[in-house]
Design a protein around this nucleic acid. Structure first.
Lengths: 159, 159
DNA sequence: CGGGTAGCTGGTCAGATTGCCCAGTGAAAA
DNA sequence: TTTTCACTGGGCAATCTGACCAGCTACCCG
């Protein structure tokens, strides 16, 4: 596990210009096309690169409001709660955590008013004892991976 | 703003099989290639589709520990704190929020012990008053967009 | 009502890229 | 020393892309 510098450069290049294609990458990186192809195959079978799905902006879809909800679950109701939350489209992700809450989820909604509806739907389930919600105002650092990839590529040098 | 059913089907198809290409999509959706191309162009210039960057798994990079940190900021120090956090590679995203905390960030680390180092680096900055951290144990619902896209495509029918 | 716009179809075209194969080389591991 | 592995540089056929076209329909507007 771990990536070397060439892997890192491939990922960063791909993150910056996703449409670029293997041939152009090999040109820019100064290596043979087969090498880039082999590296990419390996990164994907490694699981380092999960895929190339489209990044969809919920705001552009009509869901400009984002919030994080911390949930407290009744003992033993975990599995049921997960199944329940998985059925709510506005639940974008769900984690079980240590700490004050038992779960943490990311929600989106069409408006602040609509957020109320979403929260009602989320907590309107027996196993959920309490929920506390934090509405996102700004997003100074959008989800990113490049700095981490650069660090991983610089530090680890393979295994 | 909003997407119609064809847009929705395009996005879902793309999310399920990213490598698919415009031609194959047009075949499966039963529309002309030019249509799919035009839709995709529009979705991208709309900002609905931000891009096709590689989805990198931090765990496979050697960072298997994820945590969420809620930060309380000293009045007026917001901008400085943002700039500080932006320099930490392990900070994957950062939001400013309403509620008990002022900011919320997603962190990764090489281990639980390493998480301590990351947190020290995050909070080792003057403007941060307090931080409370929740370590992620499981991720029952990984970041997803398909259900929301399907709902948006079904409901809105364009504007 | 007629005109104009917008979107989709089904087709063509040249050019680029992909996936695949190969032999040769250098370095590291056994 | 022999084997293994990754990378190089090359070539091949098949495919896809981006661009363009005319024709058609639906729709809005004056």
């Amino acid at each position: 596990m771990g990536i070397d510098q060439l892997d890192g450069r491939i990922i960063v290049l791909l993150a910056r210009e996703p449409r670029i294609g293997v041939l152009e990458m090999s040109r820019r990186l100064g290596v043979a096309r087969g090498t880039v192809q082999a590296r990419l195959d390996r990164l994907q079978s490694n699981g380092v690169i999960r895929g190339f799905g489209p990044e969809v902006d919920p705001a552009a879809l009509g869901y400009p409001v984002t919030a994080f909800a911390t949930l407290q679950i009744r003992q033993g109701q975990g599995p049921d709660v997960r199944a329940h939350l998985a059925t709510v489209p506005e639940v974008l992700e769900l984690h079980t955590t240590t700490g004050t809450g038992d779960m943490m989820c990311r929600l989106v909604a069409r408006s602040n008013a609509d957020l109320q509806r979403v929260i009602d739907r989320v907590v309107g389930f027996d196993g959920i004892v309490r929920a506390s919600t934090a509405i996102v105002m700004e997003n100074p650092v959008p989800l990113r991976i490049i700095p981490l990839v650069e660090q991983a590529a610089g530090d680890t040098e393979g295994t």
